[in-house]
């Protein structure tokens, strides 16, 4: 695993995910972003420069400036050929959020997971879907 994005404005969650990732996978680049806007800007820059895309994204929903849904909308419009695993993470128990996720999942070329906080462990499916997809 070369490249993982964590998009969350809560430093504690970012810390937690990083810690859990260290325990389960070896990854060279783990990048954290405070909101969707910063992440999408980085991705656009990377595409321009021909840099590799992240293989896994951990995405919070409630964020300032650009929230998780807005990020997804913008992300799907990017010219990315590989299927990327996106783990949508939220502390919300509003059923509307789950429905929204499902809508995205159905129309999405990438793999979308839905995870409710608190997270104690990174599942293998959070990082790899290759076997299932083939």
């Amino acid at each position: 695993m070369n490249n993982i994005f964590i998009i969350d404005d809560d430093p504690i969650t970012v810390f937690g995910i990083k810690k859990m990732l260290k325990a389960s996978v070896s990854c060279e680049n783990i990048s954290a972003f405070d909101n969707g806007k910063m992440a999408i800007d980085q991705l656009r820059l990377d595409i321009e420069n021909g840099c590799p895309m992240p293989e896994v994204i951990f995405l919070d929903i409630n964020m300032p400036i650009m929230d998780g849904w807005e990020f997804l909308e913008a992300f799907l419009a990017l010219p990315i050929e590989n299927r990327i695993i996106i783990n949508v993470i939220t502390s919300s128990i509003d059923p509307a959020d789950y429905h929204k996720w499902n809508e995205f999942r159905l129309k999405c070329f990438h793999y979308l997971n839905f995870k409710n906080k608190p997270i104690f462990k990174i599942e293998t499916t959070d990082l790899s879907r290759i076997n299932l997809a083939s």
Binding site: D10, I12, T13, G16, N62, T90, S91, S92, I93, D94, K117, P118, I119, F120
Partner: peptide, 14 residues
């Protein structure tokens, strides 16, 4: 619920 949950989730995790 979202705000309180996000904090309690952090507590549990930590």
């Amino acid at each position: 619920s979202h705000n309180l949950r996000s904090h309690s989730a952090n507590f549990s995790m930590l």
